[in-house]
């Protein structure tokens, strides 16, 4: 049976891309903030290693930690970051003359217009997580989740049409 360090190493290798992508989406495509948040998510994973009881898959478990880390980040930093994050996105496109713009920025900009929880939910949908798993990550009933996803899709459609 692997010890915590070995297990963590394998989780970090297997799920780094998944967590980083989610953090990047949550941070509206800002790579530095996404790196910080990814690091924080894995630090919280390390802290929670002894709490894994096998009731869910490691993937769902790490998703939960990532979602909670993102929500904590947003409530701890909302006041100062809201302004800097929004202005940073504007600056990227304005000062770099579009040439050095982060790849997939359009994708992050669209998702970034949703509220915090909706943003996290739709990212799990985009990552093709089963609805049952998303419901277990968020902690709401599957029926309620379906209603939410339907509403988020409608919002996203509107956002994409306006772009």
């Amino acid at each position: 049976m692997p010890n915590n360090t070995q297990l963590f190493e394998s989780l970090h290798a297997d799920y780094y891309a998944m967590v980083h992508q989610m953090c990047l989406g949550f941070m509206k495509g800002d790579p530095d903030l996404a790196n910080d948040l990814t690091q924080e998510s894995f630090i919280n994973t390390w802290r929670s290693m002894d709490k894994f009881k096998g009731a869910s898959s490691y993937k769902t478990w790490i998703y939960r930690i990532t979602v909670n880390t993102c929500l904590k980040y947003i409530r701890d930093n909302k006041q100062k970051k809201q302004v800097s994050l929004d202005s940073q996105i504007d600056l990227t496109s304005a000062s770099n003359g579009q040439t050095n713009e982060q790849p997939h920025q359009e994708l992050y900009q669209a998702i970034g217009q949703l509220n915090d929880l909706d943003r996290l939910i739709i990212m799990m949908v985009l990552d093709e997580l089963e609805y049952e798993e998303i419901a277990s990550v968020v902690g709401i009933k599957e029926g309620n989740l379906r209603v939410k996803i339907h509403r988020i899709k409608k919002n996203l459609k509107k956002i994409l049409e306006n772009e």
Partner: peptide, 13 residues
């Protein structure tokens, strides 16, 4: 969006 998402994800590794 799903396609773009998967594309972005694979470039992170």
């Amino acid at each position: 969006l799903k396609n773009k998402w998967q594309e972005a994800k694979s470039s992170t590794k």
